[in-house]
Design a protein around this nucleic acid. Sequence first.
DNA 1: TAGATTGTTAATCGATTAACAATC
DNA 2: TAGATTGTTAATCGATTAACAATC
Lengths: 234, 234
Amino acid sequence: MGARPPGSTDAPPRDAAPLVRPAARTVPPSTVARLPGYLRALAEVEAQGVRTASSDALADVAGVSPAQLRKDLSFLGSHGTRGVGYDVAHLRGQIGVVLGLTRQRPVVIVGLGNMGHALANYPGFTERGFVVVGLVDADPRVAGTQVAGLRVEPAERLADVVREGGATMAVITVPAGAAQDVCERLVAAGVRGILNFAPRALQVPDGVDVRSVDLGSELQILAFHDRRKAQPSG
Amino acid sequence: MGARPPGSTDAPPRDAAPLVRPAARTVPPSTVARLPGYLRALAEVEAQGVRTASSDALADVAGVSPAQLRKDLSFLGSHGTRGVGYDVAHLRGQIGVVLGLTRQRPVVIVGLGNMGHALANYPGFTERGFVVVGLVDADPRVAGTQVAGLRVEPAERLADVVREGGATMAVITVPAGAAQDVCERLVAAGVRGILNFAPRALQVPDGVDVRSVDLGSELQILAFHDRRKAQPSG
DNA sequence: TAGATTGTTAATCGATTAACAATC
DNA sequence: TAGATTGTTAATCGATTAACAATC
């Protein structure tokens, strides 16, 4: 528990010189947000049998500019070879380390409505390094049922489910009105990363990370760009 | 009407002086992305009976800083009253206009797996200004079935479904390998805004807007922040 | 060596924050 | 009027882009 809170703006203290240089001192948030995309791109080209890829090739698959990809990767340390490119398998491993994907991470899902149900069965979580270890729903008609091979637990067992599964991450797919309460109980149980699908801003203490996915908002943002293109077709 | 448009770098062409000043000349992307959140916050306080709210109060509900909220709203024109605050109903209407939510927008969903199924039944789309007018799935076992009160159409009817529904927006929930092809066919049929759930970067021509929601990536980004907090609990 | 491509620097651009004059 | 709060300005901060020296 001696760790200093990361991401502080002051000069980073260097208590002891580490023998092994840590892969990254700091990685900007915008870069972190793109790393999963690079991981996807690497998996894709690797599946095609490519062993080495240039920043141009990778950037093309990932949908970014080569300059941005190189800049992003430079924050992780130097993992390419000038004149050659990047070793696909090696870079994949490095990004995995930076993202903390060296072990499967247990995740709990709270709220087994349509969305929660779909996420519990979503293969993408498993493929990307996560295991759903627990399901919780407050509705007594839902608790006790089986979803994706797991028993749905009642609301009062939330903390137990988190602790028994060793989960530090959770997905909230409850109605908006219940989201903040669920959030607080998850945090109290030890959860430090929350993926929130409820259309509501969640208040969390320092050290807890929330990412919100609001599907209605996504469409509204698209609608903004679409609004002038309205077609008076006949 | 002698005021010069502020904040523009180049001289904007002024072909004809509009009688009604358009609500916004340009709105920065980062601001656009936050407008749906303000809409949500306004709906919430309005439901509590609040008629007028300060930037402090709204920002609190929306989860942003008061300065940022005021700055964002200033791009839409001036809709508050100094010393008083914002008229909740009026501001809600204004943001709705800016986002182009003055009419229900028809949306097509392609891919009726777990996720597509959940989205077809998602009340949040309806509540936020959208109507699902068509469903398409390439799987012959899925096409022909009924989902959310609509018949799922086969892949070859994609363009018809888009045109018959008048949809300019679509949701892609097909496997990654099929996403680019579906995307191109949607664009060819007239779709201009795409919400993509497939974990793949989509190539689109100018004038088409894509927003990608990759749930695996979201968890991986959370994992980055969570990685050092690993608990060797006993 | 010559060609290719990274890693890094510097310049540009955009977004956020803080402060406060304007004004209800 | 005095107090409250917006709208806007200027300063800061962070992200992106372009260019190229380093180097395989």
